[in-house]
Design a binder for these strands. Structure first.
Length: 573
DNA sequence: GCCGTTTTCGGCCCGACTGTTTTCAGTCG
C-alpha cells in the first residue's frame, strides 16, 4: 500500500512550502496527505481503475496533486519533492517532531547554524549557539533540549495502532498456508503494549522451509536480515522488524509463554517453577528430563499452580501472585462494550452525519451511541455554540424516533473545553438539557502542577460535567502528560462521581494502564470511548479495551458495558 | 493548490499562548 508513502511525501512538501513562506499551498498539501493516509483503497488501484480523473475524486486532490501521484506511480519520484530535498537537505519530519519547532525556526537554524537533523540540533543547543539567535532565547534553547531528550526515550518504538493492523494482516496471510498448523502473535504486541519495538510471530509447522520462504517474500519485506529453519527476521518497509519462529508442536505453549514475555514476567514464572522443583524454558516445563507441560499455555500455568494469565497482565505487577490466589481480574472483552459516548459528527470537525454514525454503531451491535461534538472555544474544529447544540438536540430527537424500531438510542452530549479557571465554554442552562457532558482540556497545556490540578478539580465539581475526556493529555511518543496530582484527581472523581475516560485513540490511550489500575483501586468509574472523528475510527474501541485489560479493569469498572438505563444512572443528572 | 446550493475566482487558516520582543512572529490544537 503506497498511500502512506505518498502521504509522507506530501506532508514533507507542505513543510518545505511553509519554510519557503508560501501561504495556503501547504494547507492544500496537508489536506491531500491526510486524505491519502486515511484512504481505505490503495491509491495505485484507484489509478489503475480510473486513471488521473479517479485520483481527482479523492478529497483534497485536484489536478496538480493528481499529477504528482501519477508521476510517482510511473517514475517512483516526484520532481518538486526531489528539488526541495536538494535545496534544503533537512530531516524535516525529525525536526518538526521537536515540540516548539516549526518550519520557520527550522529554516533559521539551517541557514545560520547548518542544522540538518536532530543530531546537529542537539550539538548546537548544547554548545549554546541557539539562544543568541534573533527570535530565539534561553527558554527556547532549553525547550529544544527537553524535546530532544523526550524523543530519544521513545526511539524506535511505533504505536500499537500503527503495527497491530499490519501484523494481523500478515498473520492472516500466513494462516492461509496449508503448511501452517498453528500460529500466534507473541511479544509486546500480544500483550498490547502501547508502543511496540518489533513483532514476534510463532508458528507450528512440519514444513518450516516453505513457511520461511513465503514469509521472506511478502510484499512488505524491505530486507531479509536472517533466514534459517527455526527463525527468520525481516525488516519491513514500514520501518520495523518482524521475527518469525517455528517451534515444535509439543512445546508450542511454553514457547508462546516464553516469547510473549514480558521478560520480568518470565523471570518470576521460572523462579516459581524452580521452587516447585521444575525447570521452565521455551521448550517446556520439565521435571528432571521429563516434560510435564508445554503444549498449551493453559497447561503450563496450571502446572505452576495458577490460573491462566491473560497476556495483557504479564508485566510482573503482581499477576502471578494473584493467579495463585484466584484473584486475577475477570477479563473484559470487546463484546462487553454496549456503546461509545465520545464521537464527533459533521456538525463540528468530524466527517460523518449523526445518522451515518448511528448506523455503524447499530451494525457493531451497540445499544447506544453518544454524539459529543466540540464546543465553541475550539474554532479550528468548528466547535458548536449554545444555539447549535439546541438545534442538534432537535435533530437527535427526530433520529431517535426513527431508530426506535432498532431498540437503539442516540444520546446527546458535547465535549466542552475546560478553560484556565476550570469553567467551561458552554452555559449551564444548555448543558443541563443534554443527556451527558464530557469536558476536556485543549488549551494552555503547560500549566504548573498545582494550577492544572485545581483547574481539573473545579471542572469535576461542576454538577453538569459527567466525564473527563483524555484526562492526562498525553500523546504517545510526542507529548508528555499534563502535570497533575493524580491522586487528588482520583479522590475528587470518587467524591463527585465523575467518570474518567479511557480514550482509545492509539496515540492517546489516556488513561494509561497504570492510572486505570489506580482508578479501579480508588473505586473511580471509567468509560472506554473512541473519540472518533470519522466512522472507521469507531473500530478503534479494541485499543481502549486492551488498555483497560492491562489496567486490570473489569466489566463493573467500565460504565459503557451497561445497558443504557444503568449507564444513565452513573451520570450526575 | 483545492474548492464550489457563494461555482471558475477569491477565499481558505482561527485564536490563544509563549517567548521573544516593545508590538509581534511562530507554534499549537
Amino acid at each position: 500500500m503506497k498511500n502512506k508513502e505518498l502521504a509522507k511525501i506530501f506532508y514533507e512538501i507542505s513543510d518545505f512550502l511553509e519554510i519557503d513562506g508560501i501561504s495556503f499551498k501547504p494547507y492544500a498539501y496537508k489536506k491531500a496527505a491526510f486524505s491519502l493516509e486515511n484512504l481505505e483503497e490503495d491509491v495505485f488501484d484507484i489509478y489503475e481503475k480510473g486513471g488521473n480523473d479517479a485520483l481527482q475524486d479523492i478529497s483534497g486532490v485536484g489536478e496538480n496533486i493528481a499529477n504528482h501521484i501519477e508521476e510517482y506511480i510511473k517514475t517512483g519520484k516526484i520532481k518538486i519533492y526531489e528539488k526541495y530535498k536538494k535545496k534544503l537537505p533537512l530531516k524535516i519530519d525529525e525536526l518538526t517532531r521537536v515540540e516548539g519547532l516549526g518550519p520557520k525556526k527550522i529554516k533559521v537554524l539551517y541557514q545560520k547554524l547548518g542544522v540538518k537533523n536532530l543530531k546537529d540540533l542537539e550539538k548546537s543547543a548544547k554548545s549554546h549557539k541557539i539562544s543568541p539567535l534573533f527570535g530565539f532565547g534561553d527558554k527556547t534553547e532549553n525547550n529544544i533540549l527537553q524535546g530532544i531528550e523526550f524523543q530519544k526515550q521513545n526511539k524506535g518504538r511505533l504505536l500499537l495502532g500503527q503495527i497491530l493492523p499490519i501484523a494481523e494482516s500478515i498473520l492472516e496471510e500466513l494462516k492461509s498456508l496449508k503448511e501452517v498448523d498453528k500460529i500466534s502473535l507473541a511479544g509486546s504486541l500480544r500483550r498490547r503494549k502501547e508502543t511496540i519495538g518489533d513483532v514476534d510471530i510463532l508458528v507450528v509447522s512440519k514444513k518450516p522451509e516453505q513457511v520461511m520462504d513465503f514469509f521472506a517474500s511478502l510484499e512488505l519485506v524491505k530486507k531479509v536480515l536472517a533466514k534459517g529453519k527455526t527463525k527468520t527476521s525481516i525488516h519491513t518497509k514500514e520501518g520495523f522488524d518482524i521475527d518469525l519462529r517455528v517451534v515444535p508442536e509439543e512445546s508450542y505453549g511454553s514457547a508462546l509463554q516464553y516469547f510473549t514475555g514480558s521478560k520480568d514476567h518470565n523471570i518470576i514464572t521460572r523462579k516459581i517453577a524452580i521452587e516447585k522443583g521444575f525447570k521452565l524454558s521455551e521448550y517446556g516445563l520439565f521435571k528432571g528430563n521429563k516434560i510435564i507441560a508445554g503444549k498449551t499455555e493453559e497447561e503450563v500455568y496450571k502446572a505452576l499452580g495458577m490460573e491462566y494469565i491473560e497476556p495483557e497482565l504479564r508485566e510482573n505487577q503482581g499477576e502471578t501472585e494473584a493467579g495463585m490466589n484466584n484473584k486475577l481480574p475477570k477479563s473484559l472483552e470487546l463484546k462487553d462494550i454496549k456503546g461509545d459516548l465520545h464521537c464527533h459528527s459533521n456538525w463540528n470537525g468530524g466527517e460523518n452525519s449523526i445518522e451515518e454514525i448511528a448506523n455503524v454503531a447499530i451494525k457493531k451491535g451497540y445499544e447506544y451511541i453518544g454524539i459529543s461534538d466540540h464546543t465553541k472555544f475550539l474554532r479550528i474544529e468548528n466547535g458548536l455554540n449554545e444555539n447549535q447544540l439546541l438545534e442538534q438536540d432537535e435533530e437527535i430527537k427526530k433520529l431517535n424516533k426513527k431508530f426506535e424500531k432498532n431498540n437503539f438510542k442516540i444520546l446527546h452530549g458535547c465535549e466542552t473545553n475546560i478553560m484556565n479557571d476550570g469553567s467551561v465554554d458552554i452555559k449551564d442552562e444548555v448543558l443541563e438539557k443534554l443527556d451527558y457532558v464530557i469536558a476536556g482540556i485543549h488549551s494552555n497545556l503547560k500549566m504548573g502542577k498545582k494550577e492544572m490540578t485545581e483547574r481539573l478539580i473545579t471542572a469535576m465539581k461542576n454538577p453538569n460535567i459527567d466525564i473527563i475526556s483524555h484526562p492526562t493529555g498525553r500523546l504517545i511518543n510526542r507529548r508528555e502528560e499534563y502535570q497533575l496530582d493524580f491522586d487528588r484527581i482520583l479522590k475528587v472523581a470518587k467524591e463527585t462521581g465523575t467518570i474518567l475516560e479511557i480514550n482509545s485513540s492509539p496515540d492517546r490511550l489516556d488513561l494509561k494502564d497504570l492510572y486505570i489500575r489506580q482508578a479501579k483501586e480508588f473505586g473511580v468509574k471509567m468509560i472506554i470511548n473512541t473519540d472518533a472523528h470519522k466512522i472507521n475510527q469507531l473500530s478503534q474501541m479494541n485499543y481502549g479495551v486492551s488498555q483497560a485489560r492491562r489496567g486490570w479493569a473489569e466489566k463493573e469498572d467500565i460504565i459503557n458495558t451497561k445497558p443504557v438505563k444503568e449507564l444513565l444512572n452513573y451520570l450526575k443528572h
